[in-house]
Design a protein around this nucleic acid. Sequence first.
RNA 1: GCCGAUGUAGCUCAAUGGUAGAGCAACGGUUUUGUAAACCGUAGGUUGCGGGUUCGAGUCCCGCCAUCGGCUCCA
Length: 497
Amino acid sequence: MDNARRALRQDPGTAISFYATGQPGKDWEDLCRGPHLPTTGRIGAFKITSVAGAYWHGDASQQQLQRVYGIAFFSAAELAAHCQRLQAAKERDHRLLGRQLGLFTISPLVGSGLILWLPKGAMIRQELEAFLLQELTRRGYSVVYTPHIGNVNLYKTSGHYPYYKDSQFPTIKMKERDSGDEAEYLLKPMNCPHHIQIYAAEPRSYRDLPIRLAEFGTVYRFEQSGELAGMTRVRGFTQDDAHLFCTPDQVEAELRSTVDMVLHVFRTLGFTEYQCRVSLRAPGSDKYAGEAALWNQAETTLRQVVREMGVPHHEALGEAAFYGPKLDFLVKDVIGRQWQLGTVQLDYVLPERFQLEYIGADNAPHRPVMIHRAPFGSLERFTGILIEHFAGAFPTWLSPVQAIVLSISEKFVDYGRQVVGQLRAAGVRAELDSGDEKIGAKIRRARIQKIPYLLVVGAKEQQAGAVAVRTRQDEDLGAVPLAAFLEKLSAEIRTRA
RNA sequence: GCCGAUGUAGCUCAAUGGUAGAGCAACGGUUUUGUAAACCGUAGGUUGCGGGUUCGAGUCCCGCCAUCGGCUCCA
């Protein structure tokens, strides 16, 4: 009743509802938006899943209540099936697979939320970066590099500093040895101010626009300890970032091409279950910078682009960045938590803050418009989601080890080495399992590592210059001449099939 | 950050307040194998860290750290 009283005090004009199970006023009565089951007899099977604190009205400054989570089904069989699904989902959790497949680790000595990429995980990242670089080149981007720290004044100018003071690592204070001048540096929480300084480094003509500056930029944000999770929520991460500087009438075309790139990336990696969130201002909030007219224009443009491009989308108030509205591409992880991957953000504010200009055809200075975009969002989060998406069985082009040669016995190790040599010479990531176990054990080990192609070599294969090919999907392709296999494999890798 | 749970060998897990153990992995040996685990042996531990209670603590209590599930947050 305590809560009922408080609800009434907070919102005296609003009706509140009670739902009863059993006899109203006699059995259980609940202050609740409803609805309730008419009777608990409808519950065939239930299970308490977890207990956690939850804030009153979802507000961290309010009292915390105990919340008991449970699930209920009409029958015990349905409950068992559900639990089995949860178990299966757990087995593809990127934190588990990350260890089993040797992809990444986190050391408390290095710090919470700081990812250490192991060689195999780093291989995946390199392939992802190579894929993106190829797209960047195709789409007329220029790659730049910027430092990991920046003067606090940079972020004060951009406006980031006051907005996000709480979620930044504390600043580094410096005193110049000779002059005694003091300076304050920040681990960069984002790349845009740095890229803006590259734009501002020289006078720009409308003929040069759009200028598209891209960087795999590593940023640091001090996320709350309770928020950290594997690779999906971390304190240091690398954005596949780019900032486009264009004229107002180039905005729409540039937006379309950035959205197209995000969709192309998703398509290549087989993401079909994504949602595009059109992130808009919260009505009545004063936390946004810039003029209302520009915001309205920006929001209208974003809506129009997703609608015309047929992107599945929904709108969300209050999700915009302080400098502009954005399109966020969301996917769910294996336990149903939603994560933001790619993002495309429209920004009229930062060019203003930094007084950016270009000389127009009229020989007068004009203000450019910025688009921030990152198809993956962060390489850490993206890789984590990717691990779960493929359950560790990456397509061949992404697989850290693409083929493993398994020797039947010691006698064929030399031939196995030759095969590996030829595969590697052709650019295939190949390994040899030359141990003295039986072939069954080697196959088992390779299967657990989810290596796409297992190449068994024994007397028959050696004689024929062949390999006995078994795929990860358990297809037995039999003995294939090495040259023929290599050709097929190379094509598969090249086309990112 | 808040609520709760958990923390034992590289991994997965045992161990009434009474001598810290198993399987896998590692290492050594035997074996030379034809499609998901050959056999024998060896080594491996400040039981997350620090304090306390006790004759005695992996076990009980307190603090910290980390992880997990939520909440809040998320440029």
